[in-house]
Each structure stands twice: as structure tokens, then as C-alpha cells.
């Protein structure tokens, strides 16, 4: 999307809805939370578009997404943000055949669990970078921290993932 044009709401929904959903899904590990969040973000985008001044659209959109996510957590206060999928317990309990061990550690469920175990700031930075595909500058803009902080959060997040998955 051209950074300097103001998109319509339909364009945002069409072009970014799936990315917002995936961002939310990887952050929460939960389809219900993810679709609620996507709807909330689209509502906020619609409310906010008239006041949007052309600039970094990605930064603007992902700041809205992130704030919607944090507001959700705030509203739910200290309700758990992580619930293990029901079938995880059996997966974890089974012993993989030796030749499956390496492949096992890359299963999406394992990756998702590892993501959920990261501290929030790291999880958010890794998901914005590797799932959403934002640049470090865009992540800095969306999360309101210096780009050096983004760099170290992404790196430390990946290192922790590596520790859990290898």
C-alpha cells in the first residue's frame, strides 16, 4: 500500500484483515480472541480513519492493533492470556520416534507454545517482525520504543525460542 495515500476502510479490511488476525492469533494462541481482536481493530480503524494523516500507515495500523490487544487484556484484568489447547497434553505426553524428534520441534503447535512462553514484549516484537513482516522502524513506531530496543527484543526473543525448541 502506498504510504502516502489514505486508504478506505474496505481496503484496510481487505488488505490487512488477515494479517491482523494472524498477529492476534500468534499473540494469543486462541482463534476466538483473535477474531474478536480483528473485529475490534477494524472498528477502531473505521473510527480513526477520518483523523488519519498520511504518514507511516503501518505504524498507525499496528499501534491501533496493539492498543486494542492491550485494552483487551486490561479489561479481562488478570484472566489467563494463555490456555493450552486441549490436545496439547496428549501430544506432550507421547514419546516421538527418534527420527521424528527434529521434525517434532518445528510443529506449528510447538512453535506456538514457545511463542506464548515468551515475555510479552519479546513475543510482540518477534510476531510483528516474523509473522506480520514489519520493518524494525515500523515496529518501533507501533510500539513506541526506540529501534535499538526493537532490535534487542527481536534478538532475545529468537534466542529464547531457540533455547526452548532446540
Amino acid at each position: 500500500m502506498n504510504d502516502h495515500a489514505v486508504p478506505t476502510w474496505e481496503e484496510v479490511a481487505r488488505d490487512h484483515g488477515r494479517r491482523i488476525y494472524n498477529f492476534a492469533y500468534r499473540l494469543t494462541g486462541n482463534p476466538d480472541d483473535a477474531s474478536d481482536l480483528m473485529q475490534e481493530v477494524l472498528l477502531r480503524v473505521r473510527r480513526g480513519l477520518p483523523g488519519y494523516t498520511p504518514g507511516s500507515f503501518e505504524g498507525w495500523l499496528w499501534r491501533i492493533t496493539r492498543n486494542a490487544f492491550l485494552d483487551d487484556i486490561r479489561r479481562k484484568k488478570r484472566r489467563p492470556t494463555v490456555a493450552l489447547p486441549e490436545d496439547d497434553r496428549s501430544t506432550l505426553g507421547s514419546v516421538p520416534a527418534p527420527e521424528d524428534t527434529l521434525a517434532e520441534s518445528r510443529l506449528p503447535e510447538h512453535l506456538q507454545q514457545a511463542l506464548l512462553a515468551l515475555p510479552f514484549d519479546f513475543r510482540e516484537a518477534v510476531v510483528m517482525c516474523d509473522v506480520v513482516g514489519l520493518t524494525y522502524d515500523e515496529i518501533a513506531d507501533a510500539t513506541d520504543v526506540p529501534v535499538g530496543t526493537v532490535r534487542s527484543r527481536i534478538h532475545r526473543g529468537r534466542k529464547m525460542l531457540r533455547g526452548m525448541l532446540e
Binding site: 488477515r18 474478536d36 481482536l37 473485529q39 477494524l42 479481562k76 518445528r106 512453535l111 529468537r158 525448541l165
Partner: peptide
């Protein structure tokens, strides 16, 4: 390697149409 794994995670499809009839979230 870790980066590749995360980037290779499947794209999750939203269970509802992407252009929903807007309604209040089902919090």
C-alpha cells in the same frame, strides 16, 4: 533456523469473513 520456523508457520484463516457485518465484539 528459528526465524525460518516462525516465518514458516501456517497462515491462520480467520473463521469469519474478512469483511464482516460489523457488530460488537463477543468479548
Amino acid at each position: 533456523r528459528v526465524r525460518d520456523w516462525i516465518r514458516g508457520m501456517p497462515v491462520e484463516e480467520a473463521p469469519i469473513p474478512l469483511l464482516p457485518a460489523l457488530r460488537q465484539p463477543r468479548w
